[in-house]
């Protein structure tokens, strides 16, 4: 049992984007993607994380789901910087359609319009959307 998995990726760095489209708590998607992001950090790939559609609600400030018997995992997004995952994007259209602004989020994000996010997506080697 090693502390971190060791895989021979032969120094190949691929661009991975995790795309969050689902609201938290109602389904397991948000938590599963967050865990995938943390695991992927061990492989030293070029990771970015995008929030669009109801996914923007995942990083809204002030979550308190303990009465649901669930863990508040939104603080974990703030840990991503420590994992060298610095590229967090929010799609402007989704944010505005839901009455949110950049100050509503628990973590510092880049707000980008759909056209720009579309270009960023097109550059990726792997997209994991949920």
């Amino acid at each position: 049992m090693s502390e971190e998995p060791v895989f021979d990726t032969q120094g190949v760095v691929r661009k991975f984007m995790f795309v969050n489209r689902k609201a938290p708590y109602g389904t397991i998607y948000a938590l599963e993607i967050l865990e995938s992001v943390l695991i992927s950090a061990a492989f030293e790939q070029d990771i970015s994380v995008a929030f669009l559609d109801d996914g923007v609600f995942q990083i809204k400030k002030g979550h308190d789901p303990k009465d649901l018997g669930m863990k508040n995992f939104s603080p974990t997004y703030r840990a991503l910087g420590g994992y060298d995952i610095e590229k967090l994007y929010v799609e402007k259209e989704s944010m505005e359609a839901r009455g949110l602004g950049p100050d509503d989020f628990v973590v510092k994000v880049q707000v980008v319009p759909a056209a720009e996010l579309s270009k960023l997506m097109a550059e990726q080697d792997v997209l994991i959307t949920g």
Binding site: R21, L52, E93, S118, K119, M121
Partner: peptide
């Protein structure tokens, strides 16, 4: 659902 709308908004032309 809005999956198609989001796809059409973000899929790059030619994809």
């Amino acid at each position: 659902r809005n999956a198609l709308d989001s796809c059409l908004r973000l899929a790059a032309p030619g994809s």
